[in-house]
Structure formats: structure tokens, C-alpha cells
């Protein structure tokens, strides 16, 4: 990891299936008490025109997320990224993720506090 690079997480929420793996992966790594996690998966039922609906899950990084700085320093990925069942989380320098973002729809880029 280059200390000067700003790291972030690209969340391809179109593919998040709401499996909550990220929440528990984080809880295991940091031994969080129940209910605390660096990630929180939010269910959104989008109402669309013509009485249509669309079900979305948004993996939302919380105040507790450090993007696993300790793991990253050892050359590992954050736990949530490593285990994401839908492979919809990506970690890396923000610059690189921004490039990747250009080729994808419905993504958000996260930078921790």
C-alpha cells in the first residue's frame, strides 16, 4: 500500500443481493458487539412509474469502517471486500476505482473518514 494514495471502496450496488456477508465479515474481524459493524446493508424498494417496483440493497459503510487499514497495510483486502458473495465491492486507490466506475452503472464510490 502506498501511504500517500487515497484509498476507497467502489460499491456496485446493482449486484448486491442483501446477503449481509459484509456486516458479519467485519464483525468477526473486529469482534464487534451485536448490531455494530463497519457495513450496514439497507433494503430499498424503489417505486417506479406504472406501479412497478425495483428491489435494491445498498451496502453502506458506517462510522465504524476504517477500510481495514491494518489488513491493507499487510497487503490484504478489507474483510467485506474479500468475502462479498456477489463480488460487488472493490477496494483500491480512488483514482483507479474512478476509472473502473466509468464502465459501470449504478455504483457509488466510498472514502472513509
Amino acid at each position: 500500500m502506498n501511504e500517500k494514495e487515497v484509498h476507497g471502496m467502489l460499491i456496485d450496488y446493482e449486484y448486491c443481493t442483501g446477503c449481509h456477508t459484509c456486516e458479519v465479515a467485519c464483525a468477526q474481524e473486529y469482534n464487534w458487539e451485536e448490531g455494530v459493524s463497519g457495513m450496514k446493508v439497507i433494503e430499498i424498494v424503489e417505486k417506479l412509474p406504472n406501479d412497478r417496483y425495483y428491489l435494491v440493497y445498498l451496502p453502506f459503510p458506517t462510522e465504524a469502517c476504517s477500510l481495514c487499514i491494518g489488513r491493507v497495510k499487510k497487503g490484504m483486502e478489507p474483510q467485506c471486500v474479500k468475502h462479498c458473495m456477489a463480488k460487488c465491492l472493490e477496494f483500491g486507490p480512488v483514482e483507479n476505482l474512478l476509472e473502473k466506475m466509468k464502465g459501470k452503472k449504478r455504483t457509488v464510490l466510498f472514502r472513509p473518514r
Partner: peptide, 9 residues
Amino acid sequence: GRLCARALA
């Protein structure tokens, strides 16, 4: 490399 919430618990 993936693993679910129940296995990670």
C-alpha cells in the same frame, strides 16, 4: 474466496 454471513459467524 467468498463466504456467507452464517459461515463467518
